[in-house]
Design a protein around this nucleic acid. Structure first.
Lengths: 252, 252
DNA sequence: ATATACTTTTCGATGATAGTAAACGACCGT
DNA sequence: ACGGTCGTTTACTATCATCGAAAAGTATAT
């Protein structure tokens, strides 16, 4: 379907280089050449091309990503319905519950964070803007999966498997099926250290026209989330927020 | 310097296509081919390459930008010193003065917006995230120019000229020189409809180690900004904010 | 100063490959 | 069934991205 159809090598190489710069920050020709295992001269022309196209900035002999990506990123973010309609609401939610909140959508079969508040008492974020994580191992991912047609779910599992990240990760197809049914009933999903040890997360899907547009979540250290009263409080706040967002969609 | 050195055509073509999609949103092969004046088959392989690399998403036969750009954009933003140190402060500033505030740096000789608050009473933004504008026609740009070495200023003017956008734009080298001297004296710069009719802006540079890292600004409709008392109020608030940011840099 | 050891950059020959036209199949609405 | 889209595939060829080698630049030490 997508593995080996005709692609342009030079373009792939350029994006490889961009990713290297993204990971390692400002960097010179030689180091890039080293990392991607290409001749310096080849890398040089790529860097040159990307600079003259405005996607890299050359400063003191080092290349760094340009602000073009800022613009592209902003364009992408604003093109996402859930972001446009949900940002304000999750901001308020974050202020109310004083925990980190996230907006997540499905892309390429992965849960993709399209917005996150840095809650005031910000525990280190576990999911950053644009970051992608397998759906079966996160509250947000499961919330979406639970409301996707079965064949889509099958596709996604086939594509990405059910890798285990912690002791708690659901790694069996049956276990997942059961969990998704529960989530559909409850209208809410939990992640109790299924993705990262010590991290808990509660999520609700945002459903419009029977399609899950994505999900919103609250996340933080488990200590906070295990107290039943606190948990109920968070669930309630989440449900409310999701409701507000869904209503906004209706009225637009 | 960079006009005609060796570059890779295929890569440039791919980025052209990305930019087309950025401007026009989800789009099919034929329409792209039309816009960029290339054969459908050529465009097809480019879109294919970009999709399989994860930078485009193919949905219902249309291609759209993927969330990869979100991640790249976030990486870029966090790599900018002025953003990391200044975001919080301009957020507070925006809340205080209830106008739109911006963080701007110089990139490629252009003023580049690296952060902007959508003030509560948000008048339509004139500068969006990642957007670039000539420095001589904006308060933020002039604030930076005023503290750049003369030869850098010369470079920039040579590269981008002194295009006029409104009646008020400074279009002569001498006029600009004079203005920059005034800005250095006052520590603050104004844009009275020099860029866009009806829009005013006040900016202060953020200077660390005698180098301007960028500038912060407040902008809005002229009506608000012409009242002398209001103007003084905004100037004072800006100066304070810039001071706080500069201090933060010292302590880091 | 001179040398050394690294960079980045230029250049030209070569062969892989990106570009292209033309044909194909799928999908509309009429 | 028909013309009109659309996206996709194919096969050929001339281009052009690649790469080694060598030049030019930069910094450090001797």
């Amino acid at each position: 379907m997508d593995t080996d159809s005709k692609t342009i090598g030079a373009v792939e190489r350029s994006f490889d280089i961009v990713e290297v710069i993204q990971r390692r920050g400002p960097i010179g020709v030689s180091e890039v050449a080293d990392v991607v295992s290409l001749p310096k001269s080849t890398v040089y022309t790529h860097l040159n091309t990307l600079s003259s196209a405005g996607y890299l900035i050359k400063e003191d002999g080092l290349y760094r990503l340009s602000c073009q990506y800022l613009q592209l990123g902003a364009t992408v973010q604003h093109s996402i319905d859930l972001y446009r309609q949900g940002k304000e609401e999750v901001d308020e939610l974050a202020a109310e519950v004083e925990e980190r909140t996230n907006l997540v959508i499905e892309e390429n079969g992965l849960g993709t964070c399209v917005y996150a508040t840095n809650s005031s008492n910000s525990t280190q974020a576990y999911m950053n803007l644009g970051e992608q994580r397998p759906m079966h191992a996160t509250a947000t991912g499961k919330a979406i999966l639970a409301h996707l047609p079965v064949d889509r779910v099958d596709d996604i599992i086939e594509r990405h498997g059910l890798e285990g990240f912690t002791e708690q990760t659901i790694t069996s197809r049956d276990g997942l099926e059961e969990e998704l049914a529960e989530i559909r009933d409850a209208g809410i999903s939990f992640d109790n250290e299924e993705s990262v040890d010590g991290l808990c997360c509660i999520a609700t899907p945002v459903i419009v026209d029977d399609h899950p547009l994505g999900s919103i979540s609250v996340s933080g250290p488990c200590s906070q989330f295990k107290r039943p009263d606190r948990r109920d409080e968070l669930c309630e706040a989440l449900r409310n927020a999701a409701n507000v967002i869904q209503l906004d969609f209706m009225l637009t």
